[in-house]
Design a protein around this nucleic acid. Structure first.
Lengths: 329, 329
DNA sequence: GTGAAAGCGCTAACAC
DNA sequence: GTGTTAGCGCTTTCAC
């Protein structure tokens, strides 16, 4: 390659990296040779010489109770953002656990790591602290210490939904939440929504409790039936459980409740899902695209030695659609 | 590392790779040092010296009309299988296209490639042929040439569903298929199901046509309404479109048709989905786990220089559940 | 603005 | 059964 362009290897390297100034003429010749020969620098050699692999690890959750399409959105947005920064993404499954993270980090296969589905007391936290590579958590554990975390502000999200319903005059509401195992695992976001919900319920003087719900239509139907029977005054529901959003609405209707005339429904889910529901749902978006993108940006800053805030909480945005209305009088 | 164990670097390498015999004593000492020092070979150095990165590329589809959870199942099974063979997986999105494949292959970032969502005339085919690295397609293009392909035998899958319905005495049936854009792109599997369906309909002397359907509940409802209006004798439906399986069943019921007493429904979808539907659906499984695993095995064989068959078609398995019954008389 | 050369940390061919 | 050594193909100091 270098000889084809009539320059030294280092010059080729510098043309590619732009780390020192090159004469217009030389740059042109090198570029021409690159195109002609279809030259690509060898990733391994590069990683060895520069101790940068330009690869990020992304560990995605697999466990029951997680919404697969949502996870996929995160993954895609991470890959897309990484490519913008000339990085690739290595896919790890949660199953690999701490060993997987250690393996790819210590072997210098990756420069940095992103982990999703963070639990309150996550066993990966001490490991991530001990690694000499930067990492970003999508989600907040109970005690992050100085680990970098980013996520939607789920506490505020839960609260803003309650506030919306309270503003519409609803007095008795309920949260249909994630599957029980998600709470049992102490997965941060589920807990935080419940907390934000409860806090706002208290602040607004409403009645309202949290009901975990399996991610099946049957479970949703059963729960709705129970709620309607036990809480005749119920007029507002917040659903934070993607797969049962549809079933909940249908169960309400099957029980003779109109949405939104009799019962208002607010969802905490990706916008696209809320838009395409029947009826379109008032919702707080889970901004997978933005979270994934920002996670990568944070990592890039850290790799460049630029300090970043330890916590990034994205404020929730509630979009009003057809599923919520003033409480019936 | 080598000095800590009191051996030469090559000995460490050989202990790790097992490529030559090592005395029990030496192996023990080396292993002990590895553990003590927490030593991990540098992935880049290894790739450079051995021209093997032990990384596979997986390009996943993103385009509209594809069922995200199904794609995710493939991805997870590929990662899991790859790890069994001591390989990692680099995630590429379809958006990266041919350039992305070329980039990771030519830079030696990956040893081999897996591409999903293959179209009949896929622009990536010539590229894959030109690369000097092995690849496997999950799906079949119109003309695979000597490219290695694996997938469920969708033609047979379509046919076996028709056969099942014919055996139950149904005479008028319909295929509710993938979204129109999937056919328009000439995506292999959609076309093949339709072909297998049509062939079997002919062979059994039935009446039946193919109806593409958008992946929304609204579209499903509208299509079911139209079918019931235009085809009063319709008693059997094959659904090959994951997101609308539920909506189709509900639309039939809403129209006063019992499932399976009045209309039998057969689905072509992952088993898990069919099991959890209401009612549980007679279905032909999309064996994501097996396809992903086999794709990796094929790649490993090719990397080892072992020849593999160009085409692997997994035979369909129909599982009878509660949604199909003899045709009403 | 450019080149020469010393590694980066392994693997594998070649010794013995 | 083990050690020696020559690369693998880059990046980056150092020199000019």
């Amino acid at each position: 390659m270098a000889r084809h362009a009539g320059v030294s290897p280092s010059t080729v390297s510098y043309v590619l990296s732009g780390k020192r100034s090159i004469s217009e003429e030389t740059r042109r010749r090198v570029r021409a040779s690159i195109r002609e020969l279809g030259y690509r620098p060898h990733a391994g050699a590069r990683a060895l010489a520069s101790s940068r692999s330009n690869v990020l690890a992304l560990m995605i959750p697999l466990r029951s109770g997680i919404a697969v399409p949502v996870v996929m959105q995160f993954a895609v947005s991470v890959v897309t953002a990484a490519r913008r920064h000339d990085h690739d993404v290595l896919l790890l499954t949660q199953e690999e656990g701490e060993d997987g993270l250690r393996r790819v980090a210590d072997s210098a296969l990756v420069d940095a790591l992103i982990v999703m589905d963070v639990q309150m007391r996550d066993p990966r936290l001490p490991l991530l602290r001990s690694l000499d590579r930067p990492s970003v958590l999508i989600g907040f554990p109970a005690d992050a210490g100085d680990l970098t975390c980013i996520d939607l502000d789920f506490h505020a999200a839960g609260a803003v939904c309650v506030q919306h319903l309270a503003g519409l005059g609803h007095r008795e509401i309920a949260l249909i939440g994630s599957p029980p195992e998600v709470y049992a695992r102490q997965t941060g976001y589920a807990q935080r929504v419940a907390d934000g919900f409860a806090a706002a319920v208290g602040a607004h003087g409403l009645a309202g409790e949290v009901h975990p719900c399996e991610a099946t239509a049957d479970a949703a139907r059963a729960l709705v039936a129970r709620l309607l029977a036990e809480r005749p005054g119920l007029t507002g529901v917040l659903v934070h459980n993607e797969p049962v959003v549809g079933p909940v609405v249908r169960a309400l209707r099957a029980a003779g409740r109109r949405v939104p005339e009799d019962v208002s429904v607010v969802a905490l889910c990706p916008d696209e899902m809320a838009e395409h529901a029947e009826p379109p749902l008032t919702s707080v978006a889970i901004p997978a695209e933005e979270v994934g993108g920002r996670a990568v940006e944070l990592l890039m800053s850290k790799l460049d030695g630029v300090p970043v805030p330890a916590a990034t909480l994205l404020p929730p945005t509630l979009t009003r659609r057809a599923s919520s209305a003033p409480a019936p009088s």
